[in-house]
Design a protein around this nucleic acid. Structure first.
Lengths: 332, 332
DNA sequence: GTGAAAGCGCTAACAC
DNA sequence: GTGTTAGCGCTTTCAC
């Protein structure tokens, strides 16, 4: 094993407790002793075993980040933000991937009562099942992006309703009359909000509702391509598509390419997406860009603030960080 | 705190050790007692505190993954593979980002002697400094992709030399005569190998060396765009570019777009990249695609195999998983 | 100002 | 088959 406090004590001819106190800069230890201990500890490259301390009621110094996947630019950027704040606060980050599977999410969460982590940041799996496994978690938890609205804790989100509204408004302003909203796999509140905003815009601008539709997509690329080809090959093909998540937006691109449909002439496309390279796509994609990095930072900050308090209290509040509509060629 | 083994013992009127043994399915415990314990533990949603066990010389069950960044499709996919293998082996994954900063990498690694993690998977930061901080690590470590060749441990890589060779060969076969190899920030062995392969192809196919060049890029987008504009605006502009990493390849795209240079007519581009959406770029990008997911899995598997042994021995070997050249429009 | 000792949750000898 | 005990590395009373 590594070098322990006991070894330092022996080598320096001190009591274990003296060394412990010296290292924590206790006022009851003489400056000389402290200096001796610090110096020797540094020389031996000593770092305390975090888990030994964690046993004495103190914390493990680890937090868990639970996300559907990491190969998604949104989550990757969010993790970036989380990691940065964590390092600043001396915390370590554990990653858990659910792959959109609630069963896996449950079994991951269920383990969080045992002290491995002090707190949880989570973006839930898309699914219709109840969230009981989240409700009786014994450690502080902060939601980001994909939240559970009926659990009283801090939730960091973006302005999904407004974003859906602006996306539709943008397309309507471009002359589109037959809009299609591509919903995502599962039943996420954020997707619902985006869709509600979209509906609101349709009504407000008097777009014929029977010419517009909502398409329920899946988590499977081939499945989605089939659905989209059906949508785009039929007559009354939509003249605009709103992709509610990055993945289905990319599928819409692929489908258009396959069918030789021109974006934006045949179909205009706007996507909720965090793609850095949206501007390099063919054609460049108009996006609703979520502040992934900032959301990650905000969520982590809220969690660490709670962990710093003795009661771990987390306000039941929603922190909203707005998205940005970035206009590019796909809706020109 | 959560429910402990002691509470179960009290409630069931058993000794702590009896409960402990029962939970580990020891043969010295009667079936009835085991059943009672299992049932009650399940009912109480008991999971053992991993760190209490870790103190008894056993392991924390955590591994560290140290990468430059997570917002890079290669690393994201690799993490995906790592996480999958980790879950199968009952291990938990901690993420550390170095942001290409060796100093940060050092301070991260230095902490790994204290028992927080049992092993390390690392893809090193691009940098010219020595790797002493990696050499005296006390726990098993496996390199993947960006390896340190002079440290005797398992290294999972792709066939960089051959890939560089094939990339150049592909461009030469397309009639290119003035090739530019965009090197990446720092001094990584994998980039050197790619470049050596590229040079080999130039020689083998008798391409005029004075018409070809290697451009040292940075980690800064604006810096790179300046460099690339210089390269592309001069006379004797290259007719082909090899991007040695995803980032600089994207910068080359941006530079060409800015200068209104047509890809592939004015310049053909091939990139080492793991972009899922390479086919949706403008134009679709010919890539050397690294098996990120498989490399992550292989690295994790090697580590867990070592952790399963009592001596943690890791063979000093190189595991090579080949890349694939996927031809698309950018080199047509 | 320093040290001895108890205890965090758990495992593993070693009794009985 | 079950219980007692010591101890992992550390913090924290409480003595001296």
């Amino acid at each position: 094993m590594g070098v322990t406090i006991r070894k330092i004590a022996q080598d320096l001819n001190l009591a274990i407790s003296t060394v412990s106190k010296a290292l924590r800069d206790s006022h009851e230890i003489s400056p000389e002793t402290k200096a001796r201990v610090f110096e020797y500890a540094a020389k031996m490259n000593y770092t305390p075993n975090p888990y030994a301390s964690s046993l004495k009621g103190r914390k493990s110094g680890n937090i868990a980040v639970v996300v559907p996947e990491v190969s998604d630019t949104f989550f990757a950027e969010a993790i970036d933000g989380i990691e940065e704040v964590a390092q600043l606060n001396g915390y370590h980050v554990m990653i858990y991937l659910t792959h959109e599977d609630v069963v896996q999410e449950q079994s991951i969460i269920r383990e969080f009562g045992n002290g491995r982590v002090d707190g949880v940041l989570i973006s839930i799996a898309a699914s219709t099942s109840p969230a009981d496994h989240l409700r009786d978690l014994k450690i502080p938890m902060v939601f980001f992006d994909r939240v559970c609205e009926d659990i009283p804790t801090t939730r960091v989100v973006t302005n999904d309703y407004e974003s859906g509204y602006y996306a539709a408004k943008h397309l309507i302003g471009r002359g589109c009359k037959r809009l299609a909203f591509l919903s995502a796999y599962g039943d996420l509140s954020i997707i619902r909000h985006r869709q509600e905003g979209y509906s609101k815009a349709l009504d407000e601008y008097g777009v014929e509702r029977e010419n517009c539709l909502t398409v329920q997509c899946t988590n499977e690329e081939n499945e989605n391509l089939k659905i989209l080809r059906g949508l785009l090959e039929g007559k009354n093909r939509p003249d605009a598509i709103i992709g509610s998540v990055e993945k289905v937006t990319m599928h819409a691109y692929t489908a258009c390419h396959t069918l030789n449909l021109s974006i934006p002439y045949d179909v205009k496309i706007i996507g909720f997406s965090h793609l850095q390279i949206a501007s390099l796509l063919n054609p460049s994609l108009t996006t609703i860009t979520q502040p992934a990095y900032e959301m990650g930072k905000a969520a982590a900050s809220a969690l660490f603030k709670a962990l710093a308090k003795k009661n771990f209290d987390l306000k039941d509040e929603q922190i909203v960080i707005p998205s940005m509509l970035v206009e590019r060629t796909s809706t020109r």
